[in-house]
Amino acid sequence: MAATAVFEKVVVFGVGLIGGSFALALKESGQVAEVVGFGRTLGSLTQALELGIVDRAGFNVGQEVSNADLVLIATPVGTTPEIMARIAPCLGPQTVVTDAGSTKEDVVAAARSHFGERLGQFVPAHPIAGAENSGALAARADLYRGKQVVLTPLPESTPQSIARARAAWECCGGLIRELSPAEHDRVFAAVSHLPHLLSFALVHELARRDNRDLLFAFAASGFRDFTRIAASHPEMWRDICLANRTALLDELDRYRAQLDEMRAALQSGDGERLEASFDIARTARRAWGEGGGRS
């Protein structure tokens, strides 16, 4: 630990992949003196302690939050309002709250409902990093290194709060970007939430077939790459899809229209039309990959 850590005390709600990796990254950077963890089960907290993710397990929210420099909410977005309601009466004047939710407008609405005069101490965030595995065992210190972290500050967020949240994510190795909450949700409905929905849908449809064992026996790298994210946490993605359902429904309708176009081309035997679509897609995908994108 550095002689003068940026954060004396950080409280993390949710000590799995996202929250656990945040804690490990701060510890590795030497910029936190103590990390206190809250989890939904004693088992998850015990595991986080054994793995050195947190220094102490938290049991009294008021006691731990009141003198914390930073609080991270890293639980499924459906539980965020409940956590905000619990911590709001306990926030010290110096405590900054950030989150790691994949949706932002619902999180902002919850913050407005619960934080009141403390709203300026909240800085929403979304680290663009993750894995199909979850839980404390999946946490790693380098998860956010070199990855984008989107901050969506509110008009009420104080400059000091924004600076502290930015510093925390930068200590984790994140590259900071800023969007409005609404813009964030539209963007990620297209490039994250829709792909997950499609991946889950394909695997679900195949899993219901009588010959599913035969199908999966012959599935190779293309199927593996396309469906990797279908191994993600079901509860988390249920909450994300519901929280961002307006933007996601719009993206789903756009995708269905694209599928209808391809179906029409197939039905009519229009190979030229199919190839033109494939060529546009290939060019865009290669440009994205060469620009540093990760599949």
Rank of each mutant, 00 (worst) to 15 (best):
L259F: 05
G58I: 01
T227P: 07
Q121P: 07
R228D: 10
L17H: 06
E170Y: 05
E178Y: 06
L259D: 08
G39T: 06
G120R: 03
R273N: 06
R238W: 05
G269F: 00
G52P: 13
A136F: 04
Q47D: 12
L70N: 06
A287P: 04
I83Y: 00
C90Q: 14
V108M: 02
A247F: 03
I73S: 01
A265E: 07
S268I: 03
L151Y: 05
P159V: 08
R263P: 11
E275R: 14
Y255W: 12
R118F: 01
G120T: 11
A125S: 15
A125F: 08
A100K: 06
I53R: 08
E8H: 13
H233A: 14
K27F: 02
A2F: 02
Q267E: 13
W237G: 03
A23M: 09
G291L: 10
G222P: 02
A276G: 11
I280R: 15
T4P: 00
E132F: 04
R282P: 00
F216E: 03
L143H: 03
A182C: 05
L51Y: 02
P234H: 08
A68C: 11
A68F: 10
A276R: 13
E117A: 12
L51T: 11
R245F: 03
T283R: 14
R224Q: 12
L242V: 15
S295Q: 11
S221K: 12
W288T: 08
D279T: 15
V108A: 00
V187F: 04
D253V: 07
A3S: 15
A189N: 05
G292R: 01
R212N: 06
Q148Y: 09
Q121A: 10
K27T: 13
L42W: 02
R145V: 09
A88V: 07
G37P: 01
L70Q: 05
T283W: 07
N60P: 09
Q267H: 10
T98K: 01
S113L: 13
G19M: 08
L206I: 15
P155A: 04
R86L: 15
V77E: 08
A284V: 13
E82S: 15
S192F: 04
V150S: 05
G120V: 09
I229N: 05
A257Q: 14
H126S: 13
F13L: 06
R166P: 02
T95P: 08
R86W: 07
E275P: 01
G62T: 10
L26V: 02
Q160F: 07
A68Q: 13
G30T: 15
I240G: 09
T98N: 04
E50D: 15
A167E: 13
L26H: 09
R209M: 08
E8K: 15
R273S: 14
W288R: 14
A25D: 01
A265I: 00
T79R: 09
R208Y: 03
M262C: 10
G289V: 05
G174T: 11
L45Y: 01
A57D: 05
A136R: 00
R285Q: 06
G52H: 09
V61L: 08
R118P: 00
D210V: 14
L202F: 09
E34F: 00
A68K: 13
A284I: 07
H114C: 14
M262T: 01
S268V: 02
E105T: 15
A189T: 12
I128G: 03
R40S: 10
M1T: 12
L259C: 12
H196A: 11
L175E: 10
R212S: 11
I83Q: 01
L242T: 08
P127W: 02
D250M: 04
C90I: 00
C172L: 06
G269Q: 03
